[in-house]
Amino acid sequence: MNKNLIIISERNDKSTNNVLEWLDYYDIDFERKNVDSDRSDFCIRISTQETTTSVSDCIVWNRRGYMSLLPTHLKKSEWIGYLKKEQFPVLATLEKSNPKNYIGSYVHELENNKLNNLQAAAKVGLEIPKTIVTNNKQDLLNFVEVNKKYITKSLVYSPFLEKKDCYYKGNGTIVVDFEKVSEYFAPSLIQEYIDKEIEIRIFFILDNFYAMAIFSQNDLKTQIDFRNYNDVSPNRCVPFELEATTLAKIKEFVSLIGCNSGSIDLILTPENKFVFLEINPMGQYHWLSESCNYYVDKHIAELLIEKVVYE
């Protein structure tokens, strides 16, 4: 008998829709739970012998967001911050009770720690940019070398603040202007700027890795960070075959941090070195799949089916 297939996502996620169309095509039943619309019933039973949960015997693809456990009307409550925090250990337990059949992770997304990830990448032998995290100018000046460029980016999320008449938003990765640095500041991540031949985006799910080369270096808008997308003249993106040694290190890295799906950003330098930048546990792959004709949606549907039917 087939296992139940649960897909956790957001209402408007295009990639989820595409995968579900493939599941329909293959005539496989599934249950979609959207974080922004549905409340999901759940139960966790803990005894001295074992822990069982509502998803213990299911195959779960946590594509985006998380399983929403609150009564819908409470989502607008002024207590929502508190209620979400109370929900977190439940979500973590649901995930951890079924690690083999739980693909993707909201817990990883929430706890994604760039500093831990850099350390893990270095541990498996991947090159990483020289990095400092500090809150004062003196330590920063002791770290930097004259005539070198340095970038800064958020430790977790890019700044965003909405007000009545305007909003403020960060620019992603930016080059540090040392003349503007004050003596003391909130903790900031600073890395040496690395020249790139190309940037590489890798999407992975279980043991499937899809890499794409992004020619972002020749466009001033995307030179520092390809995510400052140039919609008028988009970067050229083509399939990229990672050489075996780097791929083995990447696999070791994702195993070390315990992540079974996500997107990884690398730089290939003019000296042909691969430098790890960061990992996003719930990254988008639609752009990569379409640019490279990888048919990732179809592959995801097929690997979910393999789990549902044969495991």
């Binding site: 800064t152 305007c166 960060g170 620019n171 503007k180 500041f185």
Partner: peptide, 22 residues
């Protein structure tokens, strides 16, 4: 932002008026 000691990323935080959003 810089004088108040916000993270260095705030060197390029943009203020966007909501006219476009409207």
């Amino acid at each position: 932002f810089i004088e108040e000691g916000f993270p260095l990323e705030f060197q390029q935080v943009q203020k966007v008026e909501k006219e476009q959003t409207i």
